[in-house]
């Protein structure tokens, strides 16, 4: 799906936990996330801590969208 969005001319960032799959399907901007059932959260944290975590992940995604890439690139969030 990321590839079809990219093909349409819209920059897209893929946030996912299993980054090798993302690499295989051909996403160009990739942000690794926390876990399969809660990519953008962590139920072990408090609600507030969890939102801070999610914000960091989304900010990494936004950073990926504003970064020029030539090839498939993984953007590691600083958690």
């Amino acid at each position: 799906m990321v590839k079809e969005i990219e093909r349409a001319g819209i920059p897209v960032v893929h946030m996912c936990t299993v980054t090798p799959i993302s690499m295989t399907v051909g996403a160009n901007r990739i942000v690794p996330t926390i876990a399969i059932p809660h990519p953008l959260g962590n139920p072990a944290l408090t609600h507030e801590e969890e939102k801070v975590l999610r914000r960091k992940l989304v900010e990494t995604a936004l950073q990926a969208l504003t970064t020029e890439v030539e090839d498939q690139t993984i953007f590691e969030p600083k958690l």
């Binding site: 819209i10 897209v12 960032v13 893929h14 946030m15 990519p39």
Partner: peptide, 8 residues
């Protein structure tokens, strides 16, 4: 202008 795609 841009898309964030999330996958589980």
């Amino acid at each position: 202008d841009a898309v964030i795609m999330t996958s589980t």
